[in-house]
Nucleic acid binder design. Structure first.
Lengths: 339, 339
DNA sequence: AATCTTTGCGAAAACGTTTTCGCAAAAAAA
DNA sequence: TTTTTTTGCGAAAACGTTTTCGCAAAGATT
């Protein structure tokens, strides 16, 4: 285990000061070409790399951003993460990442931990726990301590900062209207995410679309489910009486789960019943029949969020906070009728 | 944008030296209770947090590990990542993560960049590019510079370090044998990953199982495919002549793609043809019929890898390098016949 | 009253880097 | 030759922290 080479080492070798070495490596005009060349040659040969910790301490900048997401196994977050990683890496930033597993406590702890100087700023999507508790002081504290935040997807109005959101309401509205236009009248809404902001907005879009199209809202068609729920049981009452002719799922999984149950009950899709889901991962594409979904363009969301943060970090003066809205788009596949 | 509070600030407030402040906050017996209490109270009130950059510089330890994976959208890597994050966070380590997108250049660049002192060690799964190029000097350099590495899944014998691998050969052997025992004789092998170590090992297992069970190897049944290939075209020759009665897929996607084509061609699964895939993400579980897969226990792989690295980092003396093998297990679902 | 011990604190070094400023020697100009 | 300018380099401070050592004052022991 060799010692890492430092300016001091090199200085000793050539019997010069560390200042001279530093300046040589930075190609300062203060140093003679001769000296510069021999020092740079030596440094190169021995793979000298400036210690970035020392630089961070000096410059009070770490060129590192913290990304805090609820769960990387969710394909929307995974895609957003990929987008951020791309932009960060293009701009010479490193990424420190954390998963909150939807826990408020983990979110607070991890942020407290990372406020210790290792980071220049945060990109975060709120955990379910945080959105339930409605306590955002860990976020405002970070901003007060000089650490800018970009919130994406799951955001809150209670914190003033840059935001990147998906037009969830509009997306759900669009999806619902698409179902209506293709002849569906009894559209069940299934959601595992009724507790988070995003879920609420999508519900709003669903309701508005029904209303605008003269369909009365039937509360019994709104199913707020949990991850472990048995979809067979859940859907049974509706299937028995042929009560529904479409399913709009607000999250990644429940559309697929519903589809399974419907297929098992010999429904023809999309003839008897149409399905639209949210979040466009691999799943909807590969399932049979392939699932029509609203794409939230996760990668794009991530790219935009990272750009916003990096812009702010790179700019001298204060920029006004902005909120960017990424448009969803409907990816038509086999679970909906063509209009 | 407030200044972050430092020892110096506090020292000035109470007109003491920074040494006194530091000692007070660390509850040193050298300082009178009175002084300690007032300083600690003030520090707490003003949310003082020691600057970890300064500490890192002092201790030459960053409590941060670098995780380098080809692609987080692959569910095996995503799961491994989750496992690592869990273990790291439990042990007070932060994670800096990077995706190579299978590129040798990106892998080298990112490692060079991160060798600058920000990290205590690496966990890496080699990119396809690196496995093709067979140039591992960026890895051995890291080790020489005192940065331990744990390699997982895609490893190489050319670098001596800790490793966590899946028993790929045994897994493929097991899967193949399972197909044989359920009556299959013409088992097609489809692989998108023939270029990487893991794919080669699995192929070996497949061949050995055939051999051990007295089935002659038919090279025409081995299909090395590419991500963008059209599976319809690809499988057409085999379908036309009913040439195969089973498919063993070595990667995450091709089993699903093959299944689609087979279903479209009115094969009954598993009666006419059985399918087994590798990598147990959401996809195989949700697809209809659900897909029998070899689980590689990604989360477990990740946990073990992180533990190995952290153990090494936390221990004073040199530990011998070890390689841990995680056993795969067959998850029987609907694409294989029950034995 | 003289000595020894304890208590409470500060000075300074160390981690690795960049940068400002000063200064001597060499080169150029007078 | 004397003065001015340029060239080449080093000393020192700064970033924020911990820790070792030294030292004075107070307290305890003779």
């Amino acid at each position: 285990m060799k010692q890492r080479i430092t300016l001091k080492h090199i200085a000793k070798i050539f019997d010069v000061s560390i200042a001279t070495v530093s300046k040589s490596l930075n190609d300062s005009h203060e140093i003679s070409t001769e000296t510069k060349e021999k020092i740079r040659a030596y440094a190169k040969e021995h793979h000298y790399k400036p210690n970035s910790i020392a630089l961070s301490l000096l410059n009070k900048k770490t060129k590192t951003i913290g990304i805090i997401i609820p769960n990387i196994l969710n394909s929307f977050f995974a895609k957003a993460f990929v987008g951020m990683e791309k932009v960060a890496s293009e701009n010479g930033f490193s990424i420190i990442s954390c998963m909150t597993n939807e826990s408020y406590e983990k979110e607070v702890n991890i942020m407290e931990l990372l406020k210790n100087g290792t980071l220049d700023g945060f990109i975060i999507s709120l955990s379910e726990g945080t959105q339930l508790k409605q306590d955002f002081s860990h976020l405002s504290n970070a901003i007060n301590e000089g650490l800018p935040i970009v919130m994406f997807d799951r955001v809150t109005n209670s914190v003033e900062c840059d935001k990147v959101i998906v037009d969830d309401m509009q997306g759900a509205y669009h999806a619902t209207e698409h179902l209506i236009k293709s002849g569906c009248k009894n559209i069940a809404l299934i959601s595992e995410i009724h507790k988070v902001s995003v879920g609420k907005l999508r519900l709003k879009g669903y309701k508005k679309a029904l209303n605008d199209n003269g369909i009365e809202l039937d509360d019994s068609l709104i199913l707020n489910v949990h991850k472990k729920d048995d979809f067979n049981k859940l859907l049974n009452p509706y299937i028995k009486d042929n009560k529904i002719d479409a399913v709009l799922s607000l999250d990644e999984n429940s559309a697929i789960k519903a589809q399974r149950v419907l297929l098992e009950n010999n429904y023809k899709i999309p003839e008897d019943i149409s399905i639209i889901g949210f979040t466009n991962g691999k799943l909807p594409r590969f399932v049979t029949p392939s699932l029509t979904t609203m794409s939230q363009h996760g990668r794009n969301v991530g790219e935009v969020a990272a750009k916003m943060l990096i812009n702010r970090l790179n700019s001298e003066d204060d920029i006004d906070y902005t909120t960017k809205v990424i448009k969803t788009s409907l990816i038509e596949r086999e679970t909906t009728k063509r209009l």
